[in-house]
Design a protein around this nucleic acid. Sequence first.
DNA 1: TAGATTGTTAATCGATTAACAATC
DNA 2: TAGATTGTTAATCGATTAACAATC
Lengths: 238, 238
Amino acid sequence: MTSARKSKGGRSRDARGDRGIPEATVARLPVYLRALTSLSDSEVSTASSEDLATAAGVNSAKLRKDLSYLGTYGTRGVGYDVNYLRYQIAREIGLTQDWSVVIVGIGNLGHALANYSGFASRGFQVAALLDSDPARVGDRVGDLQISSLDDLDSIVRDHTVAIGVIATPAGAAQEVCDRLVAAGVSSILNFAPAVLAVPGHVDVRKVDLSIELQILAYHEQRKAQGLIGLGELEAGAV
Amino acid sequence: MTSARKSKGGRSRDARGDRGIPEATVARLPVYLRALTSLSDSEVSTASSEDLATAAGVNSAKLRKDLSYLGTYGTRGVGYDVNYLRYQIAREIGLTQDWSVVIVGIGNLGHALANYSGFASRGFQVAALLDSDPARVGDRVGDLQISSLDDLDSIVRDHTVAIGVIATPAGAAQEVCDRLVAAGVSSILNFAPAVLAVPGHVDVRKVDLSIELQILAYHEQRKAQGLIGLGELEAGAV
DNA sequence: TAGATTGTTAATCGATTAACAATC
DNA sequence: TAGATTGTTAATCGATTAACAATC
């Protein structure tokens, strides 16, 4: 284990035996990054954990705990240097390098994703748009032309694509997923409403519209029933 | 507290003091529902927790535990009646009623959402599409015309809209959110890369493209560094 | 120095999992 | 009855939170 780098910030990796950062923390780092970028854009140079926590929508104890997994980048009595911390988080996430992604399935959603400006601005390059429908192949979307799914292997190889986005109908998702994995993609963002089976080395994250709506519906229903929280139970008669 | 309904299935609500279902479980119910619907479509009438768990991509212990919060709907030695369980879950989520939603911000993503067929098929009616840009108002998308954001109040009132979807740029999200809340919407699905502040009675769920990609990038980076899991550490030389 | 704020500890809470008695 | 499978228990694990000593 010689890959643990040094940095004057004094990383606590070694102390933690480098077992990685907790998943819940990893999921919040991009949120902190965004908050820091926003503060930086507003010319704020220093921020306390309280400031940052407010901007990120979490409480400050959680934020400090999260940051403590990365290293000790703050100054007691002062706070955090916005740009320095921003860089450290970006580096931790892996945004100091560019990532090539392919988007498979260029229907309505695929189009929207292809045109999404938030990709490039955060270091994600869309290397190709792919579709299995010959009628769509060749169509221009933004400044890319839709490629055939058959070109997947060469595209992944030529652009060193590590991340694939699936925006196909549910029925096609598993096959597309298999082909992505076979081509060497090891991280998948799945927008199709389907459960994907993948080998252990492949990460899958799922974004599912209708599941999100259903979760909201569940809570909405409870509100309507007057069962929200325990407020009524505790405050009301018993 | 007289609102706990009876059902021959024998609900355990009362026994649990009706403190609701754990959030993690709520988030999986829609996944189970989808798996059940798929089995039902395949004419499967009975399924074991193992079958269901496989279809849903979880382990069977978790699935049984989750279902146990709803009631006792299975039969020992046999399994679950697919259609019966499907109905019970749908009812628990609140899908036995229709939900009206509005989509605000009809750019690329808003268009894709407006055309998404998964809404209607799961009991979510898109009551209106709204945009603050006068140039867009009146445009037809699917079988709806884009309305002005100024009509929000009357639309929410007339259609009893409980759920709002925000697909605006980040800069507009908070104001749109405030207007939705003021109009009476109490559940929000936010696609804008912004942290929303809302009153306590309002639920917000966030779907964030670039955050998902960044989480994948983090893990991808670790894989590249040969630090995946502890496999190497443990199996390798020390 | 006095005031402010971090980084860390320890307590608590919630979620996961394996195991198995209950029971079809 | 014998085999299968649920529903539940209890142990474990991971995440959250408040509090505060360390320290700028």
